[in-house]
Design a protein around this nucleic acid. Structure first.
Length: 423
RNA sequence: GGAGGAGUGCAGGAGUGGUUGAACUGGCACGCCUGGAAAGUGUGUAUACUCGAAAGGGUAUCAAGGGUUCGAAUCCCUUCUCCUCCGCCA
C-alpha cells in the first residue's frame, strides 16, 4: 500500500510512475487525495469536540467533588449536546476512512526507475543468460513421458485422491524433491538465512498483509469453517512474522528462508502450458525473504539475484534472468527479476524464481518498522524470492539430463539423493 | 468439544467509574559521581493520527470490537488468545 503522504506531495510523479505499470486511473488518485482531505478535516473536527467533552467532564468531576451538584448537572446537559454532533461526525469519519483504505489498496506499487516500459512478457528485458542448452540424444522426450517411464510422479492417482493438478510424487521422484528441498535450504542457511517452517494456512489479517487480500481472493484455497486460507507461497506467513513489530536498526537485515507446499487455484488455466509439472495446484517451493534498511534494498535485491543465480548454476541448468517490464510485474513489486530455466525437450523456458523488491509497499500495510539512531520509526523494505520452485526445476532436470540409461542427477544433489542416476 | 481462570507499557506487577498515558520494581538510554568500572544518584523511556513554520498542542490506544455513562483500564455484551481440569487425539 502506498503512503498517502507521498501521493499528496508528489502527485504528478506518482501518476507518471503508475503509467509505467500501465495503470491509468488518475481519477482514483484524485479520489484518494480527496478522501484524505475529507478524513483529515473530519478528524480535526471530531477531535476538537472530544477535547471539549473531555475538558467538561473533568470539570464535572471537580464540581461533584466540591458538592456543587447543580452546576454539574447543567454542564452535563452541555456535553449531551456535543455528543449528538460528535456522533454524526464520527460516522462520517469512519466512512471516509474506510473509503480511503479501499481506494488506497487498489493502487499498485510504483515501479522503480530501472523498470523497462512495456505491456507483455515480450517486453521483458533479458539481463543475462547462462549455462548451455544441451543437445539431447535421439529419442528424447518431455518430462511427462519420463515421469511415466521411471514411475516417479503419478498424476492419475493424484486426480483420484484430490483432483487435477495435485501430483502424487512417488519413489525416486519423491526422494528427488526431498533432496532438492534439503539442498536449497542448506544453501540458503549457509548464506545466513534463518530457516522457518511456517503454518500452511493463514488468517485474514495475514493474507491481507502481503496483499493476497482483498484482490486475489479467488486465487487462494479458502476454508470457510475456520476462515483460513491455504498459503499460495511461504512468503505470506514468513513476511508476516514481523507484522506490527518495530525492529531495532542493528537487527536489520532480517533474512529468512522456508520450504512449504504452495496452493494455487489458478482458475482458468488450461492447455499445453499446464501439462505435466509445468503448472499445478499444489507444489513445493523454498522461499527467501529479507527485511532491510531502505537505503540498502536495491543492493540487497542484486545480492539475492546473485544468490539464486549461483544456485541455478550449481544445478547445471541453462537459465536466463529477466527484468520484468511494467506490464508484467506484480501489483506489489517495485522491481522484479524472473529466473527461467530451459527445459530442453519441451523446448521451453520455465519460470522457476521471481525475486522482487517491494520497498515499503508490503511493510506499510503490515506496519513493519525499525527505529533509527535518532529514535524515529520508519518502514523497512521487504524483498523476497523463490529459491526455488520445485516442480519446474524437476521438469528441467529430467528433460535436460536424460540419456539411454536414465536421468543423471546433478552432482550437488547426489549426496542428498544417495545415488547419481534415476533409472 | 465441556467447565473454570486470566489477558495492563520493554519485562514483572498495582490499579474497580473522575487531573491515570497509567503507581511501584526491574530493564534500557543519557547525565552526575569515578583514574576507569561497580555501587550510588538524577533525568528520560510508547505508538498512531492530527493542528502548527517551529516551540508546542489535541485525539486515540490498558487483547480486539461494540455498549452504558457527562466521564471507562475499571461496569455490560461479543470475539480472540493463554492457563487449569475433563473429553477426544497424532
Amino acid at each position: 500500500m502506498l503512503q498517502v503522504n507521498l501521493i499528496r506531495k508528489q502527485k504528478e510523479w506518482v501518476l507518471e510512475r503508475l503509467a509505467v505499470k500501465n495503470f491509468h486511473e488518475p481519477a482514483l488518485v484524485d479520489r484518494v487525495l480527496e478522501l484524505d482531505d475529507q478524513r483529515r478535516s473530519l478528524q480535526t473536527a471530531s477531535e476538537q469536540l472530544l477535547a471539549r467533552r473531555n475538558a467538561a467532564s473533568k470539570e464535572i468531576g471537580a464540581l461533584m467533588g466540591q458538592g456543587k451538584k447543580e452546576e454539574a448537572e447543567s454542564r452535563k446537559k452541555e456535553v449531551a449536546d456535543l455528543k449528538e454532533k460528535l456522533e454524526q461526525i464520527e460516522k462520517d469519519l469512519a466512512i471516509a476512512d474506510k473509503d480511503l483504505q479501499d481506494a488506497l489498496v487498489r493502487l499498485p506499487n510504483l515501479p522503480s526507475e530501472k523498470v523497462p516500459r512495456g505491456k507483455t512478457p515480450e517486453d521483458n528485458e533479458v539481463v543475462r543468460q547462462g549455462g548451455t542448452i544441451p543437445q539431447l540424444p535421439e529419442g528424447s522426450v518431455p518430462h511427462w513421458d519420463l515421469i511415466r517411464k521411471y514411475d516417479i510422479v503419478d498424476f492419475e492417482t493424484g486426480v483420484k485422491i484430490t483432483g487435477s493438478g495435485f501430483p502424487l510424487f512417488k519413489g525416486q521422484g519423491a526422494k528427488l524433491q526431498r533432496a532438492l528441498v534439503a539442498y536449497f535450504l542448506d544453501y540458503n542457511t549457509g548464506a545466513g538465512y534463518t530457516e522457518y517452517i511456517p503454518p500452511y494456512m493463514v488468517n485474514e489479517a495475514t493474507a491481507y498483509g502481503t496483499g493476497q487480500l482483498p484482490d486475489k481472493e479467488g486465487q487462494m484455497y479458502y476454508m470457510p469453517a475456520d476462515n483460513f486460507y491455504m498459503i499460495p507461497t511461504a512468503e505470506v506467513p514468513v513476511t508476516n512474522i514481523f507484522r506490527d513489530e518495530i525492529l531495532k536498526e542493528p537487527d536489520l537485515p532480517v533474512k529468512m528462508t522456508a520450504h512449504s507446499p504452495c496452493f494455487r487455484r489458478e482458475a482458468g488455466s488450461f492447455g499445453k502450458d499446464v501439462r505435466g509439472l509445468n503448472r499445478v495446484h499444489q507444489f513445493d517451493k523454498v522461499e527467501i525473504v529479507q527485511l532491510v534498511h531502505p537505503s540498502t534494498s536495491y543492493d540487497v535485491l542484486e545480492d539475492m539475484v546473485l544468490h539464486v543465480e549461483k544456485l541455478v548454476q550449481s544445478l547445471g541448468l541453462p537459465y536466463r534472468i529477466l527484468r520484468l517490464c511494467g506490464g508484467d510485474m506484480s501489483f506489489a513489486s517495485a522491481l522484479t527479476y524472473d529466473f527461467e530455466v530451459y527445459s530442453a525437450a519441451q523446448e521451453k523456458w520455465l519460470e522457476v524464481s521471481s525475486v522482487s523488491n517491494f520497498e515499503s509497499f508490503q511493510t506499510n500495510r503490515m506496519k513493519i518498522r525499525y527505529k533509527d539512531a535518532d529514535g524515529k520509526t520508519q518502514l523497512v523494505h521487504s524483498l523476497n524470492g523463490s529459491s526455488m520452485a520445485l516442480p519446474r526445476i524437476i521438469a528441467a532436470i529430467l528433460e535436460n539430463n536424460q540419456f539411454d540409461g536414465g536421468i543423471r542427477i546433478p552432482e550437488v544433489i547426489q549426496p542428498y539423493f544417495g545415488k547419481d542416476t534415476i533409472n
